[in-house]
Design a protein around this nucleic acid. Structure first.
Lengths: 343, 343
DNA sequence: CGGACGTTGGAGAGCGCTCTCCAAGCATGC
DNA sequence: GCATGCTTGGAGAGCGCTCTCCAACGTCCG
């Protein structure tokens, strides 16, 4: 790399002082328009690019943020944690929302993974080193210690989904119970009366809410007993859960499945058992992820505006970075019903 | 954020000079073991974390690298470029490979997108600012100008897949023609004689190679004419291509599909036309991506070791950063056949 | 026992930038 | 005509770190 021109070089070329060039670049205070123009030409002529390290050394800001994925860490040599994360369309949607918000602002996120105590400590140290001004946190397991660690280190952070125990940290979440109610109402409206559900892992709050919300709504419709099979949000677990449901309750005519990926796994199982979807069994998924449109028939599902939520998290985080004393807030998004072919 | 302790603070606490503490931290030169121990205790006591900006200001190294996704840019408000990228499991595999290699080394990649001339210029400027020491480049379109721009700016970079025109840049690629031959040999071995193919977008070299490699191999088996429908590597395009194939060549008994995602789209089409897979029509995909195991039946496919290739790219890049005068190299990986249920 | 040499720690000069002073220049008001 | 206040540019002090010198202190051999 050839030696880059510095502020000094630009100042010399423009015949002004370093300070003036700096003022022009940062648009601070009044600089005579004629001089401004001279400086701008000098910048173009020298091909000057400000050095980030020098700048952030004095401003104590990096102008970048971290996207931290923190999780359970049942990781193996051949199937490391990050590969599981990338396989799930959920993470891609979060990343997309974050990037969408950050890009127009010229900032690029740093991708981090933390799934063991050691890597969590590393992540905190990395942030404290000043590699990023704050972090977007996405936990894949319920009781992830990272949010608390962030708070303790007083690092600006925003969480996806409400933490199981209340801690003073901002988060963004979905009204899962409302979503589950939309699914229940739709199944009832479609005339279904023998309805079952496939739940997500019940240690995660979102899965609990979707199950209890669905059961409560069905009870309100006069159906107090709803059979349930538990999965873990993966395609294979949806397949297995559907098999169990078919074995134990062959007469069902509708099923609410706590995420689209499990629903995608469940659909072929229904077909293999000779059930037509939606004629014999209506299926409602959750999330409106890419799995919903990759399924055949197309999944009727509950829209989870993950991208918008991720963008909102990013907005909150930047506001925090700007003003660290800002009050902690949470934003709850409303789900909606997306009717396609499966119900 | 409370004022962080500096080297000076640690030095004072340990009763030595800044230089000595720096030497202990960077493990440079001989420092008396007793003093080393004292310094280490002082670091622990003060909770010292080195400031990255200050360090990289003097070393002219950031210790981080960028993962740049560069592409076509048919982007719309509701479906921005990055969302398309994240929807494809391919990118996730690259990211996973990069992260897998980088993480044990304590370095975290910065995620960047560039799909217009403007954002490409921004990306170059960002790198020149010293935000990253080099870049892993993944292009989603054939004639992406970014690799050339990187070379011109003499920024260390490694490319995924051979560029259409030769430029002096290191890259990692797959022997696509060999993979296509494996598919052809397998279909023949399974007794298929009326074989068709669904190709990828023919402006990308990999898609060309897979098609020509397949045709050449089939010709060698005495089948010079192979019907072909072109897709664009998306699930929906695979579905449409399969429909066309069924309409024009209803008698086929085998099909080689240039990636798993299109194959995932094609399978339900075959079923809707009353064809059993693999009994009536054998299907071979390509990539061995998550789509291969999400399909029913499970896809027989050609393994594309994307994660290993991404790790190799990262290894090459770090070697480059270490020694910028290193000669440009390319590494070609060999594919293998993965037999599952579809053929 | 003195000089050559190896080892180890300290001093201090920056890296490139921002930002606080300060001074100069000028308009304004009494 | 002079004090006052405002605008505008420059000087220079760091930000926290690395790394080159250099000095101090042994050690060893002739």
């Amino acid at each position: 790399m050839p030696a880059s021109p510095t502020l000094e070089d630009v100042a010399r070329a423009a015949g002004v002082s370093r300070a003036t060039v700096s003022r022009v670049i940062n648009g601070i205070r009044n600089v005579d328009p004629a001089i401004q123009e001279t400086v701008r030409q000098a910048i173009a002529a020298t091909g000057y690019v400000p050095n980030r390290a020098a700048r952030s050394l004095v401003t104590r800001r990096t102008g970048s943020i971290a996207l931290v994925v923190s999780g359970a860490g049942e990781e193996s040599e051949e199937n490391p944690f990050h590969s599981q994360v990338f396989a799930d369309p959920f993470f891609g949607r979060v990343a997309s929302g974050v990037v969408g918000f950050l890009r127009p602002r010229g900032i690029h996120p740093t991708l981090m993974f933390a799934e063991t105590d050691e890597t969590r400590a590393q992540a905190i140290a990395y942030l404290r080193q000043g590699n990023a001004d704050g972090a977007i946190l996405v936990s894949t397991e319920a009781r992830d210690p990272l949010p608390r660690l962030m708070v303790e280190a007083s690092l600006p952070a925003v969480l996806f989904a409400r933490p199981p125990e209340p801690i003073p940290i901002s988060y963004v979440d979905l009204a899962h119970r409302t979503g589950a109610k939309l699914a229940a109402d739709h199944l009832i409206a479609r005339g279904r009366r023998r309805v079952a559900t496939i739940a997500g892992p019940l240690d995660v709050p979102a899965a609990q809410d979707r199950l209890s919300g669905f059961r409560d709504a069905m009870a309100a419709h006069g159906h107090p007993y709803i059979p349930c099979a538990e999965g873990d949000f993966t395609l294979a677990s949806g397949e297995a859960a559907m098999e169990r449901l078919m074995a134990e309750h062959p007469g069902i005519d509708g099923v609410f499945i706590a995420n689209d990926l499990m629903a995608q796994g469940a659909l072929p199982v229904l077909r293999n058992h000779g059930r037509r979807v939606p004629e014999d069994v209506a299926v409602v998924g959750f999330d409106d992820s890419s799995a919903a449109t990759a399924s055949r028939p197309l999944l009727t599902t509950i829209r989870h505006p993950v991208e918008d939520m991720a963008a909102e998290m990013t907005r909150l985080l930047l506001a925090y970075v700007d003003d660290p004393d800002r009050a902690v807030t949470s934003v709850i998004f409303e789900p909606s019903l997306v009717v396609r072919d499966s119900a």
